[in-house]
């Protein structure tokens, strides 16, 4: 008859104990103690992190997160986050250092974060580190319709698809005083843009190279993937790494070591290969 109150008492004691431990310990100790690394990735972001047909989160970043956790000897718990409408600063606040006011976020680490010294200065609540690859904006085009893409001026005549509100969109609608704007076709999702390229609705598509590679898969006979033929455009390439709270150097070092070990033993390469994405080494 006394069992129930006793059990409740036990729960309270455990709860209290955990609270005390959290207050004193750094994030790395907590991760090790609980045996769980909470990894934030973007929702709906193929091929990096997205929901498969069975409703499970999958993709390159999900596999990188799982491999990192394994290397640290803990399990991964995914925290899929929606991307902010405004900027990445919001995502880092929600996913890493504060959490969102709807109650989600504040994971141990966020993946797919650009690592850049200028950007680091603007986001001082987090540490950006351990770039695992270099992403760039590229153009995939149909060889039968566009013989050679040596200049963007092709798009004075030909249509080009973009995912709306991406850097490719921004650049193509504004550069050359808007000379291409009437030929830029906007799509709401990368999947819709990919379908338009494959169906011939647009002869070219500008997006992140990883997205284009994922879109085309093995279908490279008709399509060429090339860098954007525009000189001195710095925003078209960036290193992709991860972020932890700035106050957690221990966790940063452990994750950095784990990433280095994934690179050295070829695990990282295998993950990229399995997702049909080129692993370009980050630039320094």
């Amino acid at each position: 008859m006394n069992r129930i109150p006793l059990a409740a008492g036990l729960l309270c004691a455990l709860g209290l104990g955990a609270g005390v431990a959290l207050a004193n310990a750094d994030a790395l100790s907590t991760v090790r103690e609980k045996g769980v690394l909470r990894v934030a990735v973007y929702k709906d972001f193929p091929p990096y992190s997205y929901t498969d047909a069975n409703g499970r989160m999958t993709g390159l970043d999900v596999e990188v997160g799982r491999a990192l956790a394994e290397r640290m000897g803990v399990a991964m718990s995914l925290e899929p986050i929606p991307a902010s409408d405004e900027s990445m600063e919001d995502d880092l606040r929600n996913a890493v250092w504060k959490g969102h006011y709807m109650g989600w976020g504040a994971a141990d680490v966020m993946l797919h974060v650009p690592v850049n010294a200028d950007f680091q200065q603007r986001v001082d609540k987090v540490t950006l580190f351990a770039p695992y690859y270099r992403e760039l904006v590229a153009i995939a085009y149909d060889k039968d319709k566009i013989p050679d893409l040596n200049s963007l001026d092709v798009f004075r005549k030909e249509k080009v698809g973009v995912e709306m509100r991406t850097v490719a969109d921004q650049y193509l609608i504004t550069t050359e005083s808007g000379a291409y704007i009437n030929n830029v076709r906007h799509f709401r999702t990368p999947d819709a843009a990919c379908a338009a390229l494959k169906s011939g609705e647009v002869p070219a598509l500008a997006a992140q190279r990883g997205q284009l590679e994922y879109c085309l898969g093995g279908d490279r006979a008709r399509f060429v993937v090339t860098t954007v033929p525009a000189p001195n455009v710095r925003v078209f390439e960036w290193n992709v790494g991860m972020a932890v709270r700035a106050s957690e150097p221990g966790l940063r070092d452990a994750l950095g070591d784990a990433m280095e070990s994934l690179r050295q033993d070829g695990t990282l390469q295998k993950i990229f290969d399995a997702n049909h994405v080129s692993l370009n080494a980050p630039a320094h």
Binding site: Y42, F45, M88, V137, V167, W238
Partner: peptide, 13 residues
């Protein structure tokens, strides 16, 4: 901004 990011990618902000 000289460099800005949105959803893990460069952005002109």
């Amino acid at each position: 901004e000289p460099i800005s990011y949105k959803k893990g990618a460069a952005y002109l902000g």
